[in-house]
Design a protein around this nucleic acid. Structure first.
Length: 750
DNA sequence: TTCGGCACTTAGAACCCGGAGG
DNA sequence: CCTCCGGGTTCTAAGTGCCGAA
């Protein structure tokens, strides 16, 4: 079996995948021969399972053995079951759409160009540059097994290093000042330096702390709240919470029972005792004037004059410069989310039992600051104190607090363009590339394990097969009643799959239908190997619909096993590996060197799309989709008319030239010819755009591009086909993937 | 062996803003 | 010039996975 794994096609083939409504049009031109390939792969997988008769008897016996062996083991997962049944009885609501509201001042537009080079590394000697990755000897080793690279990359500066460094730097600033603006070399190439080992994340860290949400501004007195038709003045505390609800009035959320119930309960906690006594029924509350007021406010914001807008922008820029950066190990790095989440109503996704609860305002005394001892600590706002200031350089966060809905910890961390995030990202892809080297072995192994006489091993092997073939997530257990009921591979329940010995001409079809992360539906019908099918039947025997399919398995067992198969291997590595390898393969198949740039980019997007489908990255079709599609079609029609006009003109000018035979008319013919060509090109571009958009209706490419596709594959593709990398990655993405853009050559192989 | 805590990645939707086109 | 649209950006929820204590 070759390393390739054409899952994307499994799903494309299987048709109605994306929330039922996604109909693939036959736009994947490679469809047919792909299908063959896939079949071949399946065949070769079957390999030694030719002896069908004996196989069956054998299996039946085996089944007995398996059951006996396992029968006495207790099902540790059962305790969840009862609760779930209860929950089901209680909540009969339909699916919940996620909604969102943000009544707070708009965040600044962030710039990430370094403003000065003071923190740039002075050490950029090319001689120390790390060897390119395309040679197989280079391994980005996880820290545990890290060995010194014979290339001797730069040492990360120890503390003593700091002073001499600064001198060099200052000098550099002086002579480099003018060139800085458009000198990419001035950007710090952290990927040419040595990484920390032993879990140390930084030596020096200084920052200004978080930006708090603006304090609550009470409503002007003319904006009234009514209860049971009568005006009622609310206390500031109760009023603030009321405004959170008022701002969401347009959303479906506010019609949901759970949301309303949770909101009202938490709202009442903020009321004075008089208010509490009076306000007993949410239905009698009229937030209309508040809602009007906020709408007017946002209108007013939009229609502000240029100067006012500029002023706001400048202020935002100032805050960004002050709070949006930190100094980590002598480099000025962008912080991702330096603003504390404002208070509001919790918007869980899907059928979240806690939707509508009050998300508390975070105060300085809730905040833990992390920075280095020898840094200038951030100041809490006047008259307040931090909860704690600590100096833990084994973690990457700068600020943390505990959120009140789930009791989980929230963090302020660095931007994806930072060294600390970039290194990790790079490492992730290197792990996936190591998997590539041993994936055949692992696949053979789990196929063997389908025959194991131990139930837990069979379950593990079948689950792993799904994770590999279908790119399912691991599926950790979740606390009942705390979150929406969603599952991943290990937590899939019997009710989530259906088995068809035969379906639409295919044998051994499994139908998956469950809600995954973010309550996004995963629907897929896949033919599986007979052994897998039989195993699934076995796992489902004597179980209730809401029993776990893999009752002898959880993510920690699975990951422990994976760890033994390859250092650093976990379930999610398969997703990364399969996504990246699929992109590489699809690019190879779809790109036509003779195409023009837009056509090549369409190919790229299609390859990207195959991955997004594999990973089930969906989006709600944009509300304006139909309209914008129509607009585009109108444009195309107009362009067509224009083209036929131009063609007609060309013809007549040709005729004209034939008669006149002078230079001038010849020239006219040439011009007309060019015009036709230009219009044809424009038309083609529009048509490509239309195709691309149609195919993308409910598929989100961004997530895979940002998180699953080794950027070096894309960069190499750009280099190979002469596509400017800007056509593939926007500015933010180029910043995040700077390492890949710098190091990948056109022959990079994932 | 399980559990909860913690740190960090991955995710879709809301929001914003600038540029194309009228 | 204004409006509309789409891409880019921000937001924060929801996952994964590891660790240490009971």
């Amino acid at each position: 079996m070759s390393g390739d794994h054409a899952h994307a096609e499994d799903q494309i083939e299987c048709g109605s995948r994306v929330n039922d409504s996604y109909k693939h049009k036959d736009k994947y031109k490679e469809k047919d021969h792909k299908h063959k390939k896939e079949k071949e792969r399946e065949k070769s997988k079957h390999g030694n399972s030719d002896h069908k008769d004996s196989d069956k008897k054998h299996r039946d016996k085996e089944k007995e053995r398996v059951k006996h062996k396992d029968g006495s083991a207790d099902k540790y997962k059962d305790k969840h079951k009862e609760k779930r049944k209860d929950e089901k009885m209680k909540s009969l609501d339909g699916k919940v759409k996620k909604e969102k509201e943000n009544g707070f001042a708009s965040p600044p537009h962030m710039k990430s160009e370094p403003e000065d080079d003071f923190y740039h590394s002075p050490r950029q000697e090319k001689t120390l540059k790390r060897e390119r990755d395309n040679d197989d000897d280079f391994d980005f080793k996880p820290k545990k097994i890290k060995t010194e690279n014979d290339k001797k990359p730069k040492k990360r500066k120890p503390d003593e290093d700091v002073k001499p460094n600064k001198k060099t730097k200052t000098k550099k600033v002086a002579d480099g000042k003018k060139r800085i603006k458009n000198e990419p070399e001035e950007k710090w190439k952290w990927w040419e330096e040595e990484r920390y080992t032993d879990g140390v994340k930084w030596r020096f860290l200084e920052h200004k702390g978080p930006v708090f949400a603006p304090p609550y501004e009470p409503l002007p007195s003319h904006v009234k709240f009514y209860y049971d038709g009568k005006v009622m003045k609310l206390s500031p505390e109760a009023e603030e919470v009321a405004t959170f609800f008022a701002k969401m009035l347009d959303h479906e959320y506010t019609t949901k029972d759970i949301f309303r119930k949770n909101f009202f309960k938490d709202w009442r906690k903020e009321m004075t005792s008089e208010e509490k006594a009076k306000l007993t029924d949410l239905k009698k509350c009229n937030f209309g004037e508040m809602a009007e007021y906020f709408k007017a406010q946002s209108e007013a914001r939009k229609s502000k004059t240029k100067e006012e807008k500029l002023k706001i922008k400048e202020e935002n820029e100032r805050i960004l410069q002050q709070y949006g950066f930190c100094i980590m190990d002598n480099h000025r790095e962008r912080i991702a989310n330096f603003r504390i989440e404002p208070p509001g109503l919790f918007r869980g996704r899907g059928d979240h039992p806690k939707m509508g609860m009050l998300k508390r305002r975070i105060r300085p005394q809730d905040i833990i600051i992390n920075c280095s001892k020898d840094s200038k600590y951030p100041e809490p706002p006047p008259g307040t104190k931090w909860k704690e200031v600590r100096h833990d350089n084994k973690v990457t966060w700068l600020v943390s607090w505990t959120e009140n809905i789930q009791g989980s910890i929230k963090y302020i961390m660095l931007n994806p363009s930072s060294r600390i995030k970039g290194e990790k990202d790079w490492q992730k892809y290197e792990t996936a590339r190591r998997l590539k080297k041993c994936v055949d072995r692992i696949r053979n192994q789990y196929r063997e394990d389908w025959k194991s006489k131990e139930m837990r091993i069979r379950q593990r092997a079948v689950a792993l097969y799904f994770i590999d073939k279908l790119a399912l997530r691991a599926g950790n257990e979740k606390e009942e009643g705390e979150t929406a009921d969603t599952v991943g591979c290990c937590s899939v329940r019997v009710e989530h799959i259906k088995l068809y010995p035969e379906n639409e001409g295919q044998e051994f079809v499994v139908e998956f239908d469950f809600l995954g992360k973010d309550s996004i539906r995963y629907y897929n019908k896949v033919p599986v190997e007979k052994r897998v099918f039989k195993n699934l039947q076995l796992f489902m025997e004597n179980k209730e619909p809401d029993d776990d399919l893999f009752d002898r398995l959880n993510t920690s067992i699975l990951n422990k096993h994976l760890q033994e198969l390859m250092d650093g291997l976990t379930a999610k590595v398969f997703r990364t590996y399969n996504a990246s390898i699929t992109l590489q393969q699809q690019l190879k198949e779809l790109t036509n060197g003779d195409d023009n740039i837009p056509a090549k980019i369409l190919s790229y997007n299609r390859a990207n799309r195959a991955v997004a489908i594999l990973c089930n990255h969906q989006r709600a079709p944009p509300k304006t989709f139909e309209k914008s599609m129509q607009n585009l079609q109108t444009k195309i029609d107009a362009k067509r008319d224009q083209l036929s006009d131009a063609k007609r003109e060309l013809k007549s000018s040709k005729a004209d030239a034939k008669v006149r035979r002078d230079e001038k008319s010849k020239k006219t013919v040439e011009t007309k010819k060019k015009a036709v060509q230009r219009i044809e090109e424009q038309l083609m571009k529009l048509e490509v755009q239309a195709t691309d958009r149609e195919e993308n209706k409910q598929i989100a490419l961004g997530t895979s591009k940002l998180n699953y596709l080794d950027p070096r594959i894309s960069v190499a593709w750009c280099k190979k086909f002469g596509i400017p990398v800007e056509k593939i990655y926007n500015k933010t993405q180029r910043e995040k993937f700077a390492w890949a853009i710098d190091m990948a050559e056109k022959d990079f192989e994932f």
